[in-house]
Design a binder for these strands. Structure first.
Lengths: 246, 246
DNA sequence: CTAATCAGCGTCTTATAGACGCAATTAAAG
DNA sequence: CTTTAATTGCGTCTATAAGACGCTGATTAG
């Protein structure tokens, strides 16, 4: 094949050193500049270059070599800024997420909705974030800020801590899934419809209800609002729980 | 770092040939055995070997070389059975999913619930399926069977085709997210708590509500039923929609 | 001015996927 | 029962990446 991309700080079964490197880069202490020659660029420059490449050509185009080319330096020079590719990927992700919207007003439902919608926008704008949100990760400052805002949105709701966190995870998972689905549909080749149609028509007898559902969906034209649909369902479900208590 | 694993039939920007290869392997025509020497093993043997390795050592341990070793043959011999690694991965996934539970009885809610719970069990048993459900994929026979069962479960509900599909996607995404989270927690190193604790305590002032939520969650002990929580919320939400119509 | 540091980076090593082609094998065709 | 064509196993070679190591030269603390 070709893609691969693979970056994961998750690492099948690595030494723990790698992940602590991620944490160190995401949560730096004081920079301490000292003796040697001044760096040619900054960590942010490196991350920006990597993001630019990912935006333009996808995550698989982001190789250390390519990033170095973009910066006009040699590959190995990058390792003065980043311990490894996993760390670079973590930085890319946290930067791509950005800061959450800071709504302090409104009820929990409106606030949670905008939280989720904004996250959806951010990730849709950078589909490569999908591949970076696989497996156990160390959350960066931005990601934690999202969590904080989300928990804050549920402050007034009669839910305990675990329930708040679970609710946010539920919403975040929905965002992730929706973006993935949308990305698959937009793709001309290998789109959901493109790859399913031939299979479904060839085996229509084995999957009658699925065929019917897709046919109806195509006819209705009511498409690509899968995200909104799911979001409303989730919020309704949370509202039901809250109503049952409040 | 180390992991990487990367397999994705998604391939940053490949020729379409790769994905059609996936479809061809997942949905084979008639086998036609002809002239040459009899194959030393079967496609299933190859997939089984790969799955055994993934179960034992994680997906990153599944290399063509390793699979060949397992089978007692040479690496390149595998390419007589599988066009490439992406196809092998697709086969592993479809096999891991297995067939869905076939409940024809009960209301939509009970049926959907067992559908989701079973999927959760399957994927939890094989956490490596997570990494294989990233990006646009060509669904295999088992995966389509799941879809069919899911749509069937919603047969009696007053939802249109798109809504049924969206509901199933919502549930499937929740499963995926839950398994991922659980896998992160179980991991001794890099566990959610392990990596968050030091960060949260170090920056407790910046994320007060998050700290509070985690503290409360830890105190309550009410943990790891994040899956059930989300599932109930989703089903409640769908029920609300249905109630509003029925 | 001298020495401790630190940046840039050339070179080499280590996976891993996969292309290609050859030789052995076996069933179909004569 | 040969001939022949398809088909398998697989050795060899290539391409792509990440990253280890150590040297050189810049820069600044003392």
């Amino acid at each position: 094949m070709g893609g691969t991309t693979g970056v994961d700080q998750t690492a099948g079964a690595d030494r723990a050193g790698s992940s602590s490197g991620v944490a160190a880069v995401l949560w730096p202490g004081e920079p301490r500049r000292k003796r040697g020659p001044r760096p040619k660029f900054s960590l942010d420059d490196v991350v920006d270059a990597a993001i630019a490449i990912a935006d333009a050509e996808g995550l698989s185009a982001v190789t250390m070599q390519r990033v170095a080319d973009e910066l006009g330096s040699a590959k190995m020079a990058l390792y003065r800024y980043v311990p490894g590719k996993a760390e670079l990927a973590a930085l890319m992700l946290d930067r791509a997420l950005g800061l959450p919207p800071t709504n302090t007003s409104g009820r929990w439902r409106r606030r949670l909705r905008s939280w989720t919608v904004t996250m959806h926008e951010r990730m849709s704008a950078r589909p490569w974030t999908l591949e970076l949100t696989v497996g156990r990760r160390t959350p960066g400052p931005h990601e934690l800020a999202w969590l904080e805002q989300g928990v804050a949105a549920l402050r007034s709701a009669p839910l305990d801590g675990a329930e708040r966190l679970d609710t946010l995870a539920l919403l975040a998972n929905h965002v992730r899934g929706s973006v993935e689905q949308a990305a698959a549909i937009d793709q001309p080749e290998t789109s959901l419809a493109e790859s399913l149609e031939p299979i479904l028509t060839a085996h229509a007898d084995r999957f009658p209800q699925t065929v019917a559902a897709f046919t109806e969906a195509a006819a209705t034209g009511r498409r690509d609002d899968a995200f909104s649909f799911g979001l409303d369902r989730i919020l309704d479900g949370v509202a039901a729980l809250i109503a049952r208590r409040g």
